[in-house]
Design a binder for these strands. Sequence first.
DNA 1: TTGAAAGCGCTAACAT
DNA 2: ATGTTAGCGCTTTCAA
Lengths: 308, 308
Amino acid sequence: MRSRVQAVIAETGYRPNPAARALVSNRSGLIGLVILTDVDELFGDPYYSELVNGIQQGCAEHDLIFTIVPVPLPTGHSDTLAPQLAQGLVDGVIVTAGPRSDPLISGLRDLGVRVVVVGHPDDGDQILRVDVENRLGSRAAVGHLIEDGYERIGFVGPTSDFRFGAERLVGYHDALIEAGRDSDDRLVRRAAPSEEGGRSATLSLLTERPDAIFAATDPMAAGAYRALAERGLNVPEDVAIVGFDGLPRQALLDPSLSTVVQPVAEVGRTAVGLLAAEGQDAKSVILPTSLRLASSCDPGDGVAHLGA
Amino acid sequence: MRSRVQAVIAETGYRPNPAARALVSNRSGLIGLVILTDVDELFGDPYYSELVNGIQQGCAEHDLIFTIVPVPLPTGHSDTLAPQLAQGLVDGVIVTAGPRSDPLISGLRDLGVRVVVVGHPDDGDQILRVDVENRLGSRAAVGHLIEDGYERIGFVGPTSDFRFGAERLVGYHDALIEAGRDSDDRLVRRAAPSEEGGRSATLSLLTERPDAIFAATDPMAAGAYRALAERGLNVPEDVAIVGFDGLPRQALLDPSLSTVVQPVAEVGRTAVGLLAAEGQDAKSVILPTSLRLASSCDPGDGVAHLGA
DNA sequence: TTGAAAGCGCTAACAT
DNA sequence: ATGTTAGCGCTTTCAA
């Protein structure tokens, strides 16, 4: 019966030919990770590192393999994107949402490629996407600062073309409004989502004498640390800081950074899951974030900022 | 004639089916990059970043795409390595040589997978491989230090299970012998090929009062900087340093590091080329290195170390 | 339960 | 130069 076949399979080391399977089943088992930069940009960014790690996990679970499809940024359009390879060879692609990603995403869809978007593109309807609770996470972070008694809480985030930055700003406003406070735009500063951007935004913000800062990304929080150090200000005594990212292996800050932890690897795994699941043309999976408290927002003496 | 066909191709947006092509031609156009670590280890290492970048370039040239095949290190054997995917799906794989890579490489070969090795495995015969001039590069670096008049040149490199470290040590000896000097093993220190390893090796070496150090990797050179700073010694006045790697985007050292530059991206491109080229079962391509001089080995005043 | 056959979309080897 | 055909190794349907 079939046990005989199994025996021969074991004996001869038979392996089904993936190409033949792909031909008949219309599924190659290959998915693409489309990135809007050169490959070497991808490396070194701990966010991508973690995302790729999660994608790898997801691929292992679904018996898929993934390939990195870099799209040179200058052109960044769907024409150049598939050097005839991404088309037909892959069962689907994962694209990260970013300032320039929308035409790429719609281009891919027009080509009939199954797409899962990580993050929130400007046109985020009718697509499969995975994102995190940017708004709720930010609200929790700022809410915590408010509970700790901080009065003048600044926002240091990316420029408005980064959707996640806009969402985190909304969460910041949410918390202020929820606490019955005015949200004062003078306490909001935006710059490139990098350490240097965080530094310059913070330096500018300091003229408003904030007693706490919510930084929309951990690198920007690191920049805030630098800016404060340059001005001779201490964390958290003079200015408390809460960041957003919580990536493993992130540069350790001193004092340790309180931050909103987003499950990046889980995002990657989930993206693969959405790609692997048949059907479904539009679905958003929003993963929760969690607030990880550390030393950067402790009201040191335990009373300094309690009450007014 | 055929122009009509071209017209219809353009009109209908016809694209050949990759699976069908793969089936009939026995070539999938997919190559694997086998790495002996988890995916997230791969990131953040500028060497891999650069290598992957070169592989990507090579793939673009040869109309291939590549996929990352992580092999969990604990097992690291050929059994676990191909979750039935790497086998048959890829036209070949690129493996980097390392302390534990030999069984993997031979296992892959036994499986009938076309393999190109980056670096020098212990059993480096009868394989396709790409490497750099570790020995000559090191000799040039140390030779330069000798010409600059340095007398007690130390070697700080990885433990002997790293082949490239052993080769760079041989180059160090070459230069000393060529200059008619004794090679004194007391000036040789080995540790993990990391910044911390370089630091501890250098601290240990300092008891021998070297006036120059050849570090076998740039991260180790960075560790040497740290160690010297801890001891209040200046580069290059007290101790000159030359490193090995010269990767772009490497942490900038102050004073700027003289180093042996290895063309890592070129190694990646070449590896793809070897994989793509038909025939050839054994061939070693050894790419040249070049010495990039900077401030870390200038004999400051221009005379301090000239002559004895 | 087991066996036979059609056909996925291409390439390569033929015949016209 | 163009047209026709066999067959790559599977999966799926249909027949015994």
